[in-house]
Every structure is written in C-alpha cells, then in structure tokens.
Amino acid sequence: MRSLPLLAEAPQRRLPDWLKKPLPRGNEDFFTHRLLAELRLETVCVNARCPNQAECWSRRTATFMILGNVCTRPCGFCSVPRGEPLEIENDEPERLAEAAYRLRLKHVVITSVTRDDLPDGGAEHFRRCILAVRQRTGAAVEVLTPDFLGDRSALDTVISARPEVFNHNLETVPRLYRRVRGRADYQRSLDLLAYVKQQDRTIITKTGLMLGLGETLDELLDVLADVRAAGCDILTLGQYLAPTLKHIPVARYVPPEEFDRIAANARRFGFLQVVAGPFVRSSYHADEMVRPHAQTDPNA
C-alpha cells in the first residue's frame, strides 16, 4: 500500500523553466555517497542541499565540509544546522585526504562551518587539512573559509599552508547583510580578501554572491568594484534558492540571459575569471575556473 504524501513538505509550485537540470546516467553518485559515508565526511553538497549534488557526485567530486556539521552563526540563507558545535575530530585531515585520493581529485575544495567558539576559528584544522590533502594526493587545494571574525593570526595560519585558491564568499550586498548573513560584516569580509592577497600574491583569491535576494544592479556593481579593489581574482554569481520555507524567500529568479549581461559587466572590472548562471555555486566546477589561468596574475 502506498503511503500518503506529506503534502505540507512537498514542493507545490513549478520553478522557472531555466531551473531545470538533466540528471546524469549511471550510478557513479552512489560511489561518492558510499565513500563519504565510509570515511564519515561531511559535505556542503548535502548540508546546503545543493541542487548540483547529483551531477557533481556523478563526476566523483564533492566539496568537503570540515569542523563538524553544526554552525555557530544563524545565517538566513543557509541550511547547515546551527547550535552547539561538535568537537574537532583529529583524524579528519587524514580521512579527507584519503577521500580525495580515492576520488582521484586533482582539485580539492575544503570548506567549513563557522566556528566562532574556537580560539582560532578552526584555522589550524584548515591548515592541517590542506597539508594532508597535498601530501596524500598532490592536488591543488581550494579553501572556502568563514571570516574568522577578522582574526589576522587565524588567516596567517591558513595562508601558511599556501592553498592554491582562497575563497571567501561575500554572499550578498551590504544592505542585506543583517538579514542574510547575520553576524557577518561586509567590510570585514572585504578586508579578508585583500589581506590574503597582500600576504601572498601567488594565492588566487575568489568570492561569490547569490543573486535574487532583493539586491539591485547598482548595489551589485558597487560590490564588484569593491571586490576588485580588494584584488580578488575570481567571481562566481548564482541564483539564491531557499533551502526550506523557513529560510529567506527568493525575491526574484534571475533569467540566464541576465546572468550573462551581469557577467559581461563584471568582466570589465578586470577579474581573472567570472562564472555566472542560475546553478553556479562557488565550488561548482571549481577546478575548471582555475585551470586556464593558473599561471597568470591579474594584479601584477
């Protein structure tokens, strides 16, 4: 007998046509699924309910989320659970490195929950993860970090491991920060990007924003100017999609052609790479964003 549908939880409305994706054939995503389960690793793919998960996992890639799956900040756009954070697992760097090795990754993206409860915000754990992955796989490492409350010594710790890419997402325009990013601070995030570039110009810096939260084009262009002034190399722009009905609702679905126009505008600011589209996420095809430009320095 078929069970009754949970109508209250089921999606009720049809999304715009452009928010449609074909699903990959085969069961490659189950390989990734099993490996991550075996090694007890968290991913932002699952925790953020990413619409690209099936595609990425079928390509045997995932974005690892370290330092547990409980966040200390209540951001209105994010579905990662918040509450009492978990203890750091000391063997996580080795388990992560093992997963990267078995997935044969050449470009490994590591992000984390925000850990304002830790004295260094988890920076040392980031450093250990970068080094472990590099030693086991030789892969390029991209980190997507929280703001470490602007703590420069925490940033120095991560920078000292020399990740190939240092990503910190601005997420939205400053007017919407309180509602979208809670305790984050726009200027602090900008300063973080500038500081990383000042400390090591060989590290590619990167940021991302979600569109469709209620920002205006002028506000967005102001942010892009700020980001470039901070020396940021790579920009990603994607559609905000509310994880559940409890999160900030989508203000607007931005059509693909509008993403194209915004990207063309953004490129005039001199970014090394601009990737924009409804399903673009900061870690989506992250390896491809870096590959064509690995040897260039737009800030030189």
């Binding site: 999304l15 449609k20 074909p22 619409p51 399903f279």
Partner: peptide, 14 residues
C-alpha cells in the same frame, strides 16, 4: 520530470 523546491530535474532513460 521530478520537482524539488530548488530545481526541476529530468531523469533520463538508463
């Protein structure tokens, strides 16, 4: 075709 609240997906013939 299947619907979620974040995207519409098309499952293809295996």
């Amino acid at each position: 075709e299947v619907l979620t609240d974040r995207a519409t997906f098309e499952i293809v013939a295996p």
